[in-house]
Design a protein around this nucleic acid. Structure first.
Length: 492
RNA sequence: GCCGCUAUGGUGUAAGUGGUUAACACGCCGCCCUCUCAAGGCGGAGACUGGGGGUUCAAGUCCCCCUAGCGGUACCA
């Protein structure tokens, strides 16, 4: 099989982050789309680290990105390759373009360029490189090289005509070559710029489809020019609409949680985040379904259904979706995840995996309907796992009723005598007491809820009572009387 | 500034090749359920499809102009 046959036959895609920051949701979405596409077509998903900007890249960031991908369960088939380890290749290719007349040495120093830019007038960003080195006489070039003058290599962009390519998402893109400056391929320190390394690597690694953020759309013509100069066939380009913050500017740190790590820490489940991200800029078509298993996502994914307009990241919907996933999981599935959260909060005890496991699983079932994140199990679970729990003001309010001072001890007394202590018996006792004293059951129920959990919002009260257990329930009901007294004292 | 792209309710998206009162999900409001809050069920408000011109019997869907937003315009990626 020849190389070109291989390329057309095989789907090879890549995720190529630069380690200048953590993996953020935009990058994760790009990785996800590449991954879905690869899995759908039984292709190869390659991970490549674009660390050619030595100043801004760091190994910590590389680890962070790999961690993020692993957590999202986006497994790669090849790599990670590091561009920093392929520098010779880029130098050779840049050199070859100088040889073929498609590129030239530029001896202008960054300082000179900055100065020229300044002089250019009102708006410095309007300035385009003046190509002063493009037609330096041979002897001058030779002399400067001999003298060891620092030099970059620039691409010789055609002076007229235009560059056209077909984007799988955005369609035909055309730009006039006069709007493209002679961009740098190789920096004077021997490091390649993005345009060079990306083209060299994508070609070298046999990438068939380049799926990446639309922020690269405007620069793609430069790369198309490079493919031509190298005599390479173009891969398929598919640019993805950008992910925006609520204010419609590009999603960034100031919008709050943007790193994948942040979502993990907030208690998101990978499958939920994947599902949510998949629906940002892509649509499964005419269906009412919102929740898709990974298999369904792979099955339905298509480049054709990617939209062209940028998408605002709706955190509320992400939370909703995570809640859907948590609710759909069984207590057994949730247990290891909840366990991790409890450990972090210092609430974990080994007996929860031993003799109290069944009780613990039941507790998870009680709490999960209300959960939108994993961390919810910590806050909501605290009163069941510890005797230290905060009393919220709303709960305190439910305790402040004149009759409770007397009703609560009586209920405690009756509960203490109760055998067996079940959903049915506790409910009967409580309702009987309420009826006897002519108060609404709700009054008593809300007070018990406050006493037992410190909260005004919990699962059904009898579930709570049984989960807390007879002994602790009795104790907490009596202790609540002290709370009432303290509150009264404070009020005076 | 220049170049490019985009434009459907607050948000994400639907609405084969133009064809009845623009659909779904999140969010919001209300009702049911009920011991609270969720979940669930039911219902509602919310879009003259960015604006203006065309083409057509008929346009969210085609064309032009404008506007806005975003992206690019680096020896960043």
């Amino acid at each position: 099989m020849t190389n070109s046959q291989m390329k057309t036959a095989e789907i090879r895609v890549r995720f190529a982050p630069s380690p200048t920051g953590y993996l953020h949701v935009g990058g994760a979405r790009t990785a996800l789309f590449n991954w879905l596409f690869a899995r759908k077509h039984r292709g190869t998903f390659i991970l490549r680290i674009e660390d050619t900007d030595v100043e801004r890249s760091s190994e910590d960031m590389v680890e962070g990105i790999l961690d993020g991908l692993r957590w999202l369960e986006l497994d790669w088939d090849e790599g990670p390759y590091f561009q920093s380890q392929r520098l010779m290749l880029y130098r050779q290719r840049a050199q070859a373009l100088v040889q073929s007349g498609d590129a030239y040495y530029c001896f202008c120093s960054p300082e000179e360029l900055a100065a020229k830019r300044q002089r250019a007038g009102a708006d410095p960003s309007r300035w385009q490189y003046d190509r002063s080195c493009r037609s330096l006489p041979q002897e001058v070039v030779r002399a400067k090289l001999q003298a060891g003058v620092p030099r970059a290599i620039r691409f010789k962009v055609p002076l007229d005509g235009s560059t056209i390519f077909e984007d799988r998402v955005y369609g035909r893109i055309e730009v006039h070559n006069r709007d493209i400056e002679d961009f740098v391929l190789l920096r004077s320190d021997g490091h390649p710029t993005y345009h060079l390394s990306v083209v060299v690597d994508d070609a070298d690694m046999g990438i068939s489809h380049i799926i990446r953020g639309a922020d690269h759309l405007s620069n793609t013509p430069k790369q198309v020019l490079l493919y031509r100069a190298f005599g390479l066939d173009l891969p398929v380009f598919a640019h993805l609409p950008l992910i925006l913050g609520p204010d419609r500017s590009r999603l960034s740190k100031r919008h709050g949680a943007t790193s994948v790590t942040a979502y993990r820490e907030m208690g998101f489940v990978p499958a939920a985040l994947r599902n949510f991200l998949a629906l940002l800029g892509w649509s499964p078509g005419d269906t009412k379904q919102e929740i898709f298993s990974t298999e369904e996502l792979i099955e339905r994914f298509s480049l054709d259904a990617i939209s062209k307009s940028n998408a605002v990241f709706d955190f509320e919907k992400a939370l909703w979706m995570n809640g859907q996933y948590l609710r759909a999981m069984s207590a057994e599935q949730l247990e290891p995840l909840v366990r991790e959260e409890l450990k972090k909060a210092g609430l974990w005890r080994e007996e929860l995996a031993g003799e109290k496991r069944a009780w613990f699983l039941h507790l998870i079932d009680l709490l999960k309907v209300r959960a939108r994140t994993l961390t919810y199990f910590v806050e909501a679970g605290r009163p069941y796992l510890s005797d230290e729990y905060p009393i919220e003001p709303k709960a305190m309010k439910n305790l402040r009723h004149p009759q409770l001072r007397e009703l609560l001890p009586e209920l405690a007394h009756r509960f203490e005598q109760l055998h067996p202590f079940t959903l049915e018996t506790t409910e009967r006792v409580l309702r009987e007491l309420a009826a006897e004293r002519g108060v609404k059951a709700g009054l008593l129920i809300n007070a018990v809820r406050a006493a037992l959990t410190g909260s005004a919002v919990t699962p059904g009260i009898f579930d709570v009572i049984v989960a807390v257990g007879q002994e602790r329930t009795v104790h907490r009901l009596r202790r609540a009387v002290d709370w009432i007294d303290e509150a009264e004292a404070r009020a005076r």
